[in-house]
């Protein structure tokens, strides 16, 4: 029995989710592999990108949404590749129309094509516009606690700081900043970007993150399905460990786990 799975939902914009793992759908070999990885991950929220349709392509070519139907998954359209607030807002207006009025979105405004580091000024401006237009905005941001707070004050429904740069797989580089963001936030905090392997996801959850969003860590694994399932377990384990409350760190143990009395030879003096 895993009580935390049912009694401890992730609530975003008032809606509960069983899974705290959110999965991106980019960089897979094909749609079948995308679906298999998403299924193995147990994710209920999956991100999608919005792009110009390929005019002139075979009309029978399958579409992503046939493999990940909106009736089964909560699709989270993103603004990946947008470098201005205007482009991000336009993209999400199109996404809302595309997904029949769907309001939950992932906002990211990038500042630099090499690092993919977020442009915070435009992110904040876009967030304000989107919130005014009724979007429920999950926002990708740096791990700056002040910006995270301002994004929350702007009305974002979740704050999603990077653990390290998008696609880097470098893991959690600044747990202390994440800790401050988590401590102050009243909306869910999800680590978005930088997770490389299962232990990174577990650490994020042990820090008290409400969830983890990842793409490359799964898609770029040699076996994406196996990594997706590892990530599922890691997020569950990390969450359970966080809820359980870890023991304090001590340089020395003054209390061994086994009885000190009844030894056949006495312990040496410290």
């Amino acid at each position: 029995m895993k009580p935390h799975e049912n009694l401890d939902p992730l609530v975003i914009a008032g809606k509960p989710y069983r899974s705290r793992l959110l999965i991106g759908t980019g960089k897979y070999k094909d749609f079948a592999e995308t679906r298999a990885a998403v299924e193995a991950s147990g994710a209920e929220i999956v991100t999608v990108a919005i792009r110009r349709t390929n005019i002139g392509q075979d009309p029978k070519q399958p579409s992503l949404l046939e493999f990940l139907p909106p009736s089964k998954y909560t699709l989270l359209p993103n603004t990946a590749g947008c470098y201005t607030a205007d482009d991000a807002v336009r993209t999400l207006r199109l996404a809302r129309e595309l997904l029949d009025g769907h309001e939950l979105v992932k906002l990211e405004v990038l500042g630099d094509p090499k690092s993919l580091y977020p442009n915070i000024v435009d992110t904040l401006a876009a967030a304000k516009t989107l919130v005014k237009e009724g979007f429920k905005v999950m926002v990708y941001t740096s791990d700056d606690p002040i910006i995270a707070r301002q994004l929350e004050e702007a009305g974002c429904v979740a704050v999603m700081p990077l653990a390290s740069l998008i696609g880097s797989g470098m893991g959690i580089l600044n747990p202390w900043n994440l800790g401050i963001i988590i401590e102050q936030a009243k909306v869910p905090v999800l680590v978005d970007a930088g997770v490389g392997t299962a232990s990174d996801a577990a650490i994020a959850m042990e820090l008290g993150c409400d969830g983890v969003l990842m793409n490359t860590a799964v898609a770029a694994a040699k076996n994406p399905m196996l990594m997706a399932s590892a990530m599922k377990l890691a997020v569950e384990a990390g969450r359970a460990a966080f809820l359980a409350g870890r023991m304090p760190r001590k340089l020395y143990s003054a209390a061994p786990s086994s009885p000190t009395a009844g030894l056949i030879t006495p312990s040496p003096k410290p």
Binding site: G24, K27, A49, I50, R52, S63, L65, L75, N78, L98
Partner: peptide, 10 residues
């Protein structure tokens, strides 16, 4: 005109 679809992305 812009005509868009949903594609894989993270």
């Amino acid at each position: 005109l812009e005509i868009v679809v949903a594609v894989g992305g993270g």
